[in-house]
Design a binder for these strands. Structure first.
Lengths: 152, 152
DNA sequence: GCTCCTGTGTTGTATATACAACATACCCGC
DNA sequence: GCGGGTATGTTGTATATACAACACAGGAGC
């Protein structure tokens, strides 16, 4: 058993430094800001994120999207299923029969168009919350992660 | 219908600036690092986060913990249920009958002790991923959020 | 051509999360 | 003391997430 004094040190260290509790707090807070802004459209930011990857990259496979977002393929599989149900994207079998191909529908495109002002509002609100410097730090940190994912 | 050109602008803006997709990417990545490190102990970082708040603050109510983590009370209710099942914390009715009181068990304390080296490893790995500057930025951003939560 | 290995996607299970609706308990003003 | 408003916690429902196990398709080596 650890000494009482050491125990306190352990708790204090984790409490005052833990990166996980902090990133998770930021995630809940910021996701909430965007979800609230998008609520009138009936879409969540998690879903719009997937649609944006497909919009940006054109014809991609589910695996490509999952890698880009550093997300489990099984997670993405179910997310895609829901987006397909709402007819925001289409899934077809690739020529080789192995990979599937994702593609935005016209309805999906319209959704992105309509999302713009709501997204903008949430983005501004988040910048106000974090401050300009904080916001830029998040962008930089994400770029670092993307760079390292690419290398693997 | 928006013009094709404007549509491209919309997609590019969101794709290149969106804070939500980035914080969510960081959340998945970092949560994964900590969960993997803690797997030998059979605890997840989300659960350790809750236990740490209780350890740090002593006798707290579920509502207090939820506010501190900016989490829905209903979410915390179910998390506590699982922690109670594993006997890492105890729930008792407060004197006033209204608020409940959470308290770590001896088993919960031992879990935190045993977690220390695994947490330390994950924290170091995360710092290596983000860089010192990136890691510090996350700490600062979280402090900003906590400050604003406190004001509300 | 067969075999094995790898990449791709799905399904089973558990957890984390939020919102809405609800039941209570408390407190404040009167 | 009473009534209404508010704080507290639970439950129903939907989504997001991961891990493990699986099915299957393609290719590489022989």
């Amino acid at each position: 058993m650890m000494k009482e004094e050491s125990m306190t040190t352990t708790v204090d260290s984790i409490a005052s430094e833990c990166l996980a509790v902090r990133i998770r707090l930021l995630n809940r807070t910021i996701t909430g800001i965007f979800d609230e802004a998008l609520r009138p459209l009936g879409v969540k930011i998690s879903q719009l994120n997937v649609l944006m990857v497909v919009a940006k990259r054109g014809l991609v496979s589910p695996g490509d999207v999952a890698r880009r977002l550093n997300m489990e393929k099984s997670t993405l599989s179910r997310n895609v299923e829901r987006l397909r149900t709402r007819e925001w994207l289409r899934v077809s079998d690739g020529e080789s029969g192995r990979k599937q191909v994702l593609e935005l529908t016209a309805k999906g495109l319209r959704l992105i168009e309509k999302s713009w002002p709501h997204w903008k509002k949430a983005q501004a609100e988040t910048e106000a919350l974090l401050g300009q410097q904080g916001a830029r730090s998040i962008l930089r940190a994400a770029n670092t992660v993307w760079a390292q994912l690419g290398r693997d």
